[in-house]
Design a binder for these strands. Structure first.
Lengths: 109, 109
DNA sequence: TGAATTCATCGTTATATTGCAATAATACGA
DNA sequence: TCGTATTATTGCAATATAACGATGAATTCA
């Protein structure tokens, strides 16, 4: 991402940007939507569902895991992923607070 | 970003990812927060406020403009930026719908 | 034990993003 | 018109992302 200097920004700004960044790819949005839709865990059908190669899916899953948004448990040779509700709600609250800023003030442009 | 294949995804997924991506940098988060805080328009004090070089700020502003989230009007030699409430609310609704998915189902992990 | 299955990791390529210096463009005032 | 101030654009250099083939690790089953 070039050379972003995280220390220039507030913790708040970095956190929002971090969350937004992980949502900033349609494959990851699709993975999360699928996990919600299937509700119960799913394994590697994401490869078929999304249409990317297995290593690519694995990489996207890793990024989602790094933020704790999803978690996986081993089930034999397969791995079962699902949403982590606590982290999801934490992100939802953080982003909502940012998005809910007041837009009713008279804007001069 | 490597070679993301936008045509693989739904319009919905691309839209959410597009919005999230532009929020995925702390400088842009900071710019938007500042525009909200100052409420009335501001010009190029963002350079002092954020602490990046003027061309860098200009580039971030351009990305926010591309999505229509902010708009600028010329005021002499300065340019006055502010939030575009319509677009902001459209983004807010789109992201909220995605984030508000139900997390109450029993998760198996 | 050995083959098969599933997922993660590594290594590489292609592309995107960040950041800035230099420079251009625009508008104002003297 | 000329100089000044402000913002945009251009052209890099450094770094991050995305994608995938090849390979490795773990597990199940024969």
């Amino acid at each position: 991402m070039g050379r972003t200097k995280a220390e220039m920004y507030t913790e708040d700004q970095n956190k929002i940007a971090m969350w937004a960044k992980v949502l900033g790819h349609p494959a990851r949005v699709g993975i999360l939507q699928h996990l919600f839709r299937i509700n119960s865990c799913i394994c590697g059908d994401l490869v078929d569902e999304i249409g990317l190669a297995q290593p690519t899916i694995s990489q996207h899953l890793k990024e989602l895991k790094n933020l704790g948004l999803i978690q996986g448990t081993v089930e034999g040779t397969r791995i079962c992923y699902c949403i982590n509700p606590e982290k999801w709600n934490e992100m939802k609250a953080g982003i909502a607070e940012f998005l809910n800023q007041d837009t009713t003030s008279p804007n001069c442009c």
